[in-house]
């Protein structure tokens, strides 16, 4: 196969995911993440964003889900049949929705678990310093049980923990969930900095489209287990439909009437 574009870091081609052998959740999803890029995966609740990320990280299998068609390739190697721990060794780490810190471990122990796949004690120490550099707040919290630190700090622990694996690609699932707007901004800034300084590529699943499209270069929009739109982040944020459905914007100064809302419904069905 010859193509002029450089090979993407991650390519998901036409995957279908079935839960419990019967429930079809993803119906042919394709996307790519370039080396060192940030890609946003947008969509409403239940659109299939998390499932897509879990298909990539291999966590799907812990929830009785299965990739039944299509392929996921990371640097040209098929990874959709690997278990999560192998996927992490390949360089992909998922930061799960809802943070999932180890509440009973201290903040620092949480970070240390992230280095599990790499055995080197020396570099672990250095990586801890890197994490504390990006999340200075965690330095003061290092001895606290992670269950007792604030939500924003837990999100930082979750991202820092993933960083400890020295990933080439980070799958971030709803990092903004349940956080105050200020914190959301802070976390997105750190993600952008990580991407710039450490070269970590990011696939970002978000409902907060405004925020996600600010840091991402490319975006995909999912609905009902399908990708319905994709393009440059800027182009997406200027797309009229996206503005209406996801960014909550209509023409300046106009107020929405219920008739318009009903109208959205129809158009949205058409869109998917």
């Amino acid at each position: 196969m010859v193509s002029d574009a450089p090979r993407p870091l991650l390519s998901v081609s036409n995957i279908e995911v079935i839960y419990d052998h019967v429930i079809l959740v993803l119906k042919g999803v394709s996307l790519t993440v370039p080396e060192g890029g940030i890609v946003a995966l947008l969509g409403a609740n239940g659109a299939g964003k998390s499932t897509t990320l879990k298909a990539i990280s291999g966590l799907l299998r812990t929830e009785r889900g299965e990739v039944t068609k299509g392929a996921i390739e990371f640097r040209g190697r098929a990874i959709h049949r690997r278990n999560p721990s192998e996927v992490v060794k390949h360089g992909i780490v998922q930061v799960m929705e809802g943070r999932h810190v180890f509440e009973h471990l201290t903040v620092e122990e949480n970070l240390l678990t992230g280095a599990y796949t790499r055995h080197n004690g020396q570099s672990t120490k250095k990586d801890l310093d890197v994490v504390y550099h990006y999340f200075p707040r965690l330095t003061e919290r290092r001895g606290f049980k992670a269950g007792y630190v604030s939500g924003g700090e837990q999100q930082m622990v979750a991202i820092g923990r993933a960083l400890m694996a020295r990933p080439t690609l980070m799958l971030l699932d709803e990092p903004s969930m349940g956080l105050a707007p200020m914190l959301v901004t802070e976390i997105f800034e750190i993600v952008a900095r990580l991407n710039r300084a450490e070269g970590v590529a990011v696939l970002l699943a978000e409902q907060n489209a405004t925020m996600a499209l600010q840091v991402a270069r490319h975006g995909y929009v999912m609905e009902n287990g399908r990708i319905v739109l994709d393009g440059d982040a800027k182009a997406i944020s200027e797309n009229e439909d996206i503005k209406e459905f996801y960014l909550g914007l209509t023409g300046v100064g106009q107020r929405k009437s219920y008739r318009d809302v009903k109208h959205y419904r129809r158009r949205k069905r058409w869109l998917s």
Partner: peptide, 24 residues
């Protein structure tokens, strides 16, 4: 120890342990 912390992490949240690459 690294393995001990991994064991405690697994006891705490199995799925999260898998997500960070711990061989459960």
């Amino acid at each position: 120890s690294r393995m001990g912390i991994a064991m405690r992490a697994t006891a705490n949240d199995q799925q999260a342990a898998m997500a960070v690459g711990i061989n459960v």
